[in-house]
């Protein structure tokens, strides 16, 4: 991939638009980034997208910042990360700077509230779409272990309110340990 001006422009605009539409919590970046970087630009693959989310979720600080920096670094090293960091910080910075001047009027504006109410349902739909696509893919893979991890971690976080960090830690260790065991078994056969 040639890292010319056009590339950096595309990188900047893609992360800028993701950041400008990160309404309703960090996970909205998943459908937004997946569409841009996986489906349209083919810069990263689907599994890598989930890995980036896993790493971002495990780090402190805003998820969108971590995810953007990781994508920028992956595509163009430190300069890429600098570009994506800037493009991610700009939208909330500009929007909040403007809105902090008249936030009382903004907060109570009925049109703004109606737009947001509609968008909430839309956001729920795009997240549901990503969960359906990725979840069905895992179920179709017939990988019992993956399906079990998916079910168990959902129950742990949603019903038992177990900390997200703890769940990530346990699943990561579990994945590592099963790999080591599988490798040992494979080694004996060979």
């Amino acid at each position: 991939m040639v890292k010319d001006f056009q590339f950096y422009k595309k990188l900047f605009l893609s992360t800028f638009s993701v950041s400008a539409f990160t309404f309703g919590g960090g996970y909205v970046i998943v459908p937004l980034m997946k569409k841009k970087f996986v489906e349209d630009l083919h810069w990263i693959d689907e599994n890598e997208m989930l890995d980036i989310v896993a790493i971002s979720q495990s780090l402190p600080g805003p998820m969108v910042v971590d995810a953007s920096v990781l994508i920028g670094y992956r595509l163009a090293g430190i300069p890429g990360a600098a570009v994506t960091l800037l493009s991610t910080l700009l939208p909330p910075f500009v929007i909040l700077s403007v809105i902090s001047l008249f936030y009382q009027a903004f907060r109570t504006n009925p049109v703004v509230n109606a737009v947001l109410k509609g968008m909430q349902a839309g956001i729920a739909a795009i997240i549901a779409d990503v969960v359906l696509s990725d979840g069905l893919k895992i179920c179709k893979s017939k990988n019992t272990l993956s399906i079990l991890i998916m079910a168990a971690s959902f129950i742990a976080v949603y019903f038992l309110n177990i900390s997200v960090i703890l769940v990530i830690l346990i699943c990561g260790v579990f994945g590592g340990v099963t790999t080591v065991i599988r490798n040992r078994k494979g080694g004996k056969k060979a």
Binding site: I123, D134, S153, T179
Partner: peptide, 28 residues
Amino acid sequence: LVKGVFEGLRPAIVSLIATAGLSILFLA
């Protein structure tokens, strides 16, 4: 080993996205 760790993580991440999605859905 790293591959294995992330293979264990991916299904969990899908579930995390699902729980966040459900909160937004119920809010809506």
